[in-house]
Design a protein around this nucleic acid. Structure first.
Lengths: 140, 140
DNA sequence: CCGTATCCCCGGGGATACTG
DNA sequence: CAGTATCCCCGGGGATACGG
């Protein structure tokens, strides 16, 4: 994966190992959030379906990500040996446990965006009429 | 950054844009969690201090990450033009707002780890005395 | 001390072609 | 349909050296 780890050799005894790192490394994987998000909102679905939805992803990448997620027990793979074969992916119970956190994150993201927009608006207004400064700014 | 984005050109109108993506891209950045974690647990600190703590990171990388975090208003940079110069980094209010989510994540991570350990133990026991199966397994 | 500038290298990931 | 196998390329990031 592309996320550098503290080099094992360089790893000092004072090295910081935050527990959530594992999960973040998971979520952090390229495309991962898109995949989870899709499985959440559109429910269990087949490989091709997922690939179509996560637009731009390559088959190689999608496979690799799904395998990793499966390994972490966040995603379940159902293989039906029909012809043509049918493979369905779905969130596991454990995968669902991330919903809450993801919701919180989404919520924060939305709020920040709104705050930023307000800031920009305030700044624009201030540029036109530079009286009463500071009250918005005070929030940092 | 190393996290692939759906190629803009390939981006379809059905493209999935989950709101938290921005934040995750932020947290996701290499080393980022280590940096935030350190700022949280050891408080405001200077560049070199931080670099020493986040063992293995290069100056280039640390600078780039801090700049990005600063740009996202998660981290504050205090420059004191003494000789030698003194630069202190700290979490902003906004940066602190991630604490809750990070705590939740850490909590989940710890629980999963415990569950996995329990599973392994159960499996080992089962290998020795294969009676009463199923109850742990049933949890998926 | 806190960075930028430069070089260079490795491997992650896309494209393509092919199988069960 | 759901992947693997192969090739190839680009840029992310470390190491090093230097500036304010």
């Amino acid at each position: 994966m592309s996320i550098p780890t503290p080099t094992p050799t360089t790893q000092s005894k004072e090295s910081v190992t935050c527990p959530m790192d594992f999960i973040l490394r998971m979520l952090m994987g390229p495309w991962t959030t898109y995949i989870l998000y899709n499985l959440r909102t559109h429910g269990p679905q087949r490989f091709g379906e997922l690939k179509r939805r996560v637009s731009g992803i390559s088959a190689k990448m999608l496979t690799e990500r799904l395998r990793t997620l499966e390994g972490a027990a966040l995603v379940k793979r159902d293989y039906e040996a029909t012809i043509p074969p049918k493979v369905t992916y779905s969130l596991t119970k454990r995968g669902g446990e991330l919903d809450e956190v993801m919701d919180r994150l989404a919520e924060i993201a939305v709020r920040w965006e709104a705050e930023d927009a307000a800031q920009r608006a305030a700044r624009a207004a201030e540029a036109r009429a530079p009286e009463n400064l500071g009250e918005l700014r005070a929030a940092e």
